[in-house]
Design a protein around this nucleic acid. Structure first.
Lengths: 336, 336
DNA sequence: AACGTTTTTGGGAACGTTTGCACACTTTTT
DNA sequence: AAAAAGTGTGCAAACGTTCCCAAAAACGTT
């Protein structure tokens, strides 16, 4: 804001003190006498003094802001994560800057670099489904930018990570389909390079194995763009249907809704004959038709944990070398 | 970021120039010779110089950032607005800071004040459904903070505003219900103090009038918390059903989905007997059961227009005194 | 050759903080 | 009574920019 506001200097002048004394009084430092502190605090209150965060940032060489990259905020999973992030960040006096990659590598890189040049103190990121090359993140990290990954994490990057128990979530969902009598279960999933894709595929395979159902690679369809293009989804559905699946396990929020949409659009007659189980944090799932079984991730908590880890890195006095990967349990919400 | 990065000073020293010359060369000012410019630019490129936006902000007394307040990002209408805002803002080199009020006045005020103290250059805001008192905005505005309202706008506040054609949108939706044979049409709406509530009520009334249907106040139910509490919605539905409506016109995104949810939960037997038309920008509306007719707002465009107006205020050399209220048309998507 | 113009560059203050250091004054210790 | 220790405050530099003002260099004109 460009409008005038009182500064430490003003207070100092008004009270006949030096700026250093005022600054120290405001930050409640031990060197300052109680008397002076009271005086300063009272006057600051009176003139409604607000510290200028920009000046502070410049001096301290940090911005008290953290960057967030998600593919889309219009996705309940991510917006819940963001809520979790904010709940912790605001508490600790950080503010957050949100950017969307829209599942595009180019956009993701651009946004990260924009954020970095905006002097964020740390970065929370879920990779886009297109992303393969994370060297640009590595180099930022090497220069000292703390990074914590969540949800979609790279394998070969030593830092804190927070993920859902994707294996178990997928296993449970697939098992649920099997137990309700399905035998030809397709798997619709994200781009192959995402961590979640691999983990969820393993869970799916494990459930099949447990019930002695043969794993057929042709029943697995990958979507490079994570369901951002409806054409991609319709194509996948079109290829899947001839194999006559009686169930589909879908591995992400966007894909789950997109797949049902594609199914209804292209083959409405079979749409409610196929049982669907999918990852989604949509709070509208009860309204969907056909209804489905959903795997809900602890999104809010994921945001909180990731933020705590990030802030601990930011505020660490010495470089952090011990990293954790936190794994949070999912919840299976059965079709009603 | 705390890590070392080259500054203007470094460049100056390396090239044997003064900081002022380097600064001017980088900003391509006319005073500097082509030769020097080339030299500086090349070197800057080589050391990957990035201007420090914090220092720039401090000097120029502006932050190149704009604040956004919406009730919830997990709402397609708002997330689309945000996408519109970003599309313009990034173009003009502003970044955005998003805050959520969660329909709470207290939270809204807190967030605005937090943003203001973070030195935003301007504010884009859609009021929370609880908000009645906007004096805190007035005082910020008086101190020089440019503000543009969108969607939920106050009546008595002289600044730019961007809204949908709520009257027409409501009229169309209500007329659609009437034309499909409904005669007892309830209206479920937001808190009475919102601008959109009033405008949409008028559209509803006008449609009834046109078809000579008596307006019955008892068919109108207000939700103070905008559907944030499911109890509130269930209560409204409970009070409405005894009046045996054959159609419901619902005036906002959150309420529309919430109402269908409440209907299905408390009275599943009537849920698909009542025709529903409601404002919503959900992109999942095709999946809903019962299906509904929806009024879609031009959310993306609304964000764009609001941002353009805001930036024009921010960059105006002299105080703006002529304000516009832009009205954008809605789109009726009929139930299939 | 001396002067005025124009073009290009540099010095240094300022934006609002924080903080190392020095200083003055009290109080305690020997 | 002098030295040491403790307490409270102020000075000034620094963070990385921008920009006013002056100075230097280059050029043209008589």
């Amino acid at each position: 804001m460009r409008f005038e506001t009182s500064t430490i200097k003003d207070i100092a002048k008004a009270l006949g003190l030096s700026t250093s004394t005022v600054s120290r009084a405001l930050r409640d430092r031990y060197e300052i006498s109680e008397e002076t502190k009271k005086l300063v605090l009272a006057y600051a209150e009176k003139v409604n003094y607000r510290a200028n965060p920009i000046a502070r940032s410049l001096k301290e060489r940090r911005s008290y802001s953290i960057g967030i990259i998600v593919s889309e905020i219009a996705n309940n999973f991510f917006s819940q994560v963001i809520n979790g992030i904010e709940s912790i960040a605001y508490d600790k006096d950080y503010h957050v800057i949100i950017s969307q990659s829209h599942e595009s590598y180019k956009q993701e890189k651009l946004n990260v670099e924009h954020l970095a040049s905006r002097s964020i103190d740390g970065l929370l990121i879920a990779l886009s489904s297109e992303t393969q090359d994370i060297d640009y993140l590595r180099s930022l990290y090497a220069k000292g930018l703390p990074i914590v990954f969540f949800d979609r994490v790279p394998e070969d990057f030593e830092t804190h990570k927070v993920i859902a128990n994707n294996f178990k979530g997928s296993f449970d969902a697939t098992e649920h389909l099997i137990l309700s009598g399905k035998r030809t279960i397709a798997h619709l999933t994200n781009s192959e390079n995402l961590s979640i894709t691999k983990e969820r595929l393993e869970g799916y395979k494990a459930a099949l194995l447990k019930y002695h159902i043969e794993f057929k690679p042709e029943l697995v369809k990958y979507c490079q763009h994570g369901g951002m293009h409806s054409a991609e989804l319709e194509q996948a559905v079109k290829e899947l249907l001839p194999l006559q699946p009686d169930g589909i396990f879908i591995s992400s929020d966007r894909l789950t809704t997109g797949c049902i949409m594609a199914l209804k659009k292209t083959n409405p007659e079979v749409a409610d004959k196929i049982a669907i189980a999918g990852f989604t944090n949509s709070n509208l799932v009860e309204l969907f038709s056909p209804s489905l079984t959903s795997v809900k991730q602890p999104a809010f908590e994921m945001g909180q944990v990731a933020t705590e880890l990030l802030i601990s890195m930011i505020e660490a006095k010495r470089p952090v070398t011990e990293f954790e990967t936190k794994v949070l349990d999912t919840e299976l919400v059965k079709k009603r």
